[in-house]
Design a protein around this nucleic acid. Structure first.
Length: 492
RNA sequence: CGGGUGGUAGCGCAGUCCGGUAGCGUACACGUCUGGGGGGCGUGUGGUCGCAGGUUCAAAUCCUGUUCACCCGACCA
């Protein structure tokens, strides 16, 4: 079967949906806004998880798990956080069903099984976690607490998109507690660096680190740091956030500790998270009209070997030769798939593995074996070359590294080519509409102006970049004085 | 959540206006010829038309409700 893909030019968002569905990453489900992550997509997520998890552990964090449900009274304790999420919460009100006397074979909610207190399905876990930390922390000796959890959360989004915005999604959320403000801020920045490191060196997705403006800040945070990536259609994607929560949650949940002088102090907090949304970002950073393009470091299959044979005899001969190659690849830590299935012919397999974004394809037939070589094709550039069987493992290992690096360089170039500094409103509009991408422009620092710009252009301030140079200028909208440019874009 | 469009075989679609009990391509099974970019020929299998109700002698088709998806908008860390 020919799997027709919409091209990016035809309809970028349809192209995205096609890739996710036909690339076997995910499927729709019978539940509004919730998707099924298929084995191939989940394998990708597992590779991402494994890399991140190691990075968290290497920076001193431990994993734990907290409940899915948050009692309403706890949820509302930190006012701003509660208010920020209130409109998108799923709520459990009952704990039992019963057979419907008026509707044979159907069930109904048992009105007698109403909960005393509603349970909120977590949209994020600060509340339940800080209510727990209260009991863990007595002394400065109990600090810091450096905990991460891998979990699902639910946010009742009005409009959902596979991976980018689903009602239920998988993520990790780190929640740390510290004795001092400085230490908490350092933690916030450290984890932002971990995210940026992961995005660039594993996903080959370059990001800009920055701080959110007040109106874009996480509900309940003092400061929200973020990494912002740029997609191929010129729209920005918030790829991860790290929040300095100040003492807001400590005060809301009364979490105090005795310092060295036996004085009671409120604890300082951070939280940080990345989600399966990263997979959406990955798709929209590298993939093309032929399908997914996955970076080798996280690709579920790094190399696929397609034997080309006529009849069982040839197949057996190639199988035997390739068994050695596969073993050698595996010994070198290369994730390899040998596809000698006879259901589909080579051309079909080529197309299929391109759709799935496998970084390297090796084709091998009798002709190649006579010459002691194989045909090697790379997904990122579509180049095909004949390579000697001698030293093939080394060649492939090196090529995987090169593809990883090439994808990053390509994405960096695209991103850098799409950061434009503008000084006037007309230029601003022009770039957003035609060139697209990030726009660096002066802003007077007020939420009102930010809001007006958003209303008129749909562009938001993605962040104030961390390494931003100070520079006097005039706000593109109001002309009021500004001390630095901020990063605007239309965003997902 | 408001407006629009769609849901018929695993996938992509026709049939719906003008009710009469479902068809095409592909996939799948078997056979055969094939095999270096999504194979050819032949023979078959598979659905009761998203779900629930209603009208009718008769419903994929008409009516009501509902659900899932997509698009626009509002909303969204």
């Amino acid at each position: 079967m020919v799997k027709e893909l919409t091209t990016r030019e035809q309809d970028y968002s349809q192209w995205y949906n096609d890739l996710v569905l036909k690339g076997s990453l995910a499927d729709y489900s019978a539940v509004r806004g919730c998707m099924v992550i298929k084995p191939y997509g989940y394998a990708l997520w597992e590779n991402m998880q494994a890399a991140l998890d190691k990075m968290f552990k290497d920076t001193g964090h431990e994993n734990a798990y907290f409940p899915l449900f948050v009692p309403k009274s706890l949820f509302e304790a930190e006012e701003k956080n509660a208010e920020g999420f209130a409109k998108e919460c799923a709520i459990v009100t009952h704990y039992r069903l019963k057979t419907d006397p008026n509707n044979k074979g159907k069930l109904m909610v048992d009105p007698e099984a109403k909960l005393e207190e509603e349970l909120i399905v977590r949209p994020t876990s600060e509340a339940i976690i800080w209510n727990t930390y209260k009991t863990w922390i007595q002394s400065y000796r109990d600090l810091p607490i450096l905990v991460n959890q891998w979990a699902n959360v639910v946010r009742w989004e009005m409009r959902t998109r596979l991976f980018l915005r689903t009602a239920e999604f998988l993520w990790q959320e780190g929640h740390t507690a510290h004795a001092t403000k400085d230490e908490a801020i350092a933690e916030t920045v450290k984890m932002l660096d971990v995210y940026a490191d992961f995005a660039e060196n594993w996903m080959a997705m370059p990001v800009i680190k920055g701080v959110k403006t007040e109106s874009e800040r996480f509900a309940g945070a003092e400061d929200t740091y973020c990494i912002e990536a740029l997609m191929q259609d010129g729209k920005a994607l918030q790829a991860g956030t790290s929040h300095f929560l100040g003492q807001n949650f400590a005060k809301a949940f009364d979490v105090k500790f005795s310092d060295k002088n036996n004085t009671q102090e409120y604890v300082w907090a951070t939280s940080w998270g990345v989600s399966t949304r990263l997979i959406g970002g990955l798709v929209m950073t590298h993939s093309d009209d032929e399908g997914l393009v996955l970076p080798p470091r996280i690709a579920p299959v790094q190399v696929v070997i397609v034997p080309i044979f006529k009849g069982d005899e040839q197949k057996a001969m190639i199988d035997e030769k390739m068994a050695v190659v596969v073993a050698s690849f595996k010994a070198a830590g290369i994730r390899v798939k040998y596809d000698n299935s006879d259901n589909n012919r080579p051309g079909w397999k080529f197309a299929e593995y391109e759709l799935k974004g496998v970084p390297i394809r090796i084709a091998v037939g009798p002709r190649d074996l006579e010459n002691n070589q194989v045909e090697l094709a790379r997904r990122d550039t579509k180049e095909k070359t004949d390579i000697s069987l001698d030293g093939l493992t080394k060649t492939v290992a090196a090529l995987l590294l090169e593809i990883q690096s090439n994808l990053l360089q390509r994405a960096i170039k695209y991103r850098d080519d799409h950061i434009t500094s503008v000084d006037t409103w007309d230029e601003f509009i022009n770039v957003l509409d035609n060139k697209t991408g990030f726009v660096l422009a002066h802003w007077d620092g007020t939420a009102a102006t930010e809001e007006k710009i958003k209303d008129q252009t749909k562009a938001t301030i993605r962040c104030i970049p961390l390494d931003n140079p100070l520079e006097d200028g005039k706000c593109i909208l109001t002309g009021n004085p500004s001390k630095q440019r901020v990063l605007f874009a239309r965003a997902y």
